[in-house]
Write a protein that binds this DNA or RNA. Structure first.
Lengths: 130, 130
DNA sequence: TAACACTGTGTAATAATATAACATATTTAA
DNA sequence: TTAAATATGTTATATTATTACACAGTGTTA
């Protein structure tokens, strides 16, 4: 069981917006969209985004500087993310593959490093774009 | 056998610099360092970086917006990269793990997507920082 | 209750990362 | 030897993200 986070007003507004989109949103496009709700400055957006990432409600697509909601409602996994990204249409999908997750979770390098997180991004062409 | 790329002057200058560092360098720190060699503008740096990434001589650490040389001299693998990143000292190491590479290379999602590239970043604490 | 830590807010300014647009030069290939 | 492709140099600008400061709310804890 995990502590149920209570979101603040700004965090809710921004999470709502991201959850309504099935594709990643960029910080300044979020800013544009939430101006009508009284969020005026980049920092207000980034603060909310950082918090939402931290608690696993959204993930950052590092190669795209964009943020996508985690569809896995029970997801506490801010720490183990896998995405597929179409380089043509930029469609992004989060991948939940048990075997792959296991493999990555159990991965040990030869340097004695202790991992607590990973992010994997696959690139290619989606069905539509092939 | 692969076509041996001939690098231009700017590309060589920037590759040299990155190869001399065992840690990732950021574009504007590269710019600062190569100003004495007559490279004056961000775009000159980014153009060289993009080319070097494309031919696999360097890799971009997406989560850090930084560039590291590929130590694997035979590396044609701009397309399959794995890194370990220490979140305390920011030490970055490229990982070459045959079994892991195989697993990732062979990964198929359930959406019929055709992958041609992936990037995996592990985060944690290195030996020194534990 | 007051003192404190902690987290969040709002605002302005600025830093850091990256690309567009244009004119020109060099290299490669037909 | 012309055309296509790639690279250069420069200026300006777009995009992404943080610093710094003043203050407000919430929950200890003493």
């Amino acid at each position: 069981m995990q502590k149920q986070e209570t979101l603040t007003k700004n965090q809710k507004i921004i999470l709502d917006l991201i959850e309504k989109s099935d594709q990643p949103l960029k910080a300044y496009s979020i800013l544009f969209d939430v101006k009508k709700k009284g969020i005026n400055a980049p920092l207000q957006v980034y603060r909310a985004l950082n918090k939402l990432v931290k608690i696993g409600k959204i993930h950052k697509i590092e190669s795209r500087n964009a943020f996508i909601a985690c569809k896995n409602s029970k997801c506490q996994i801010a720490k183990a993310t896998v995405f597929s990204i179409c380089e043509s249409c930029e469609d992004v999908t989060e991948i939940h593959d048990h075997k792959l997750s296991e493999h990555l979770r159990d991965f040990k390098d030869n340097k004695g490093m202790k991992y607590n997180k990973y992010n994997l991004e696959f690139f290619g062409l989606c069905k539509k774009c092939i």
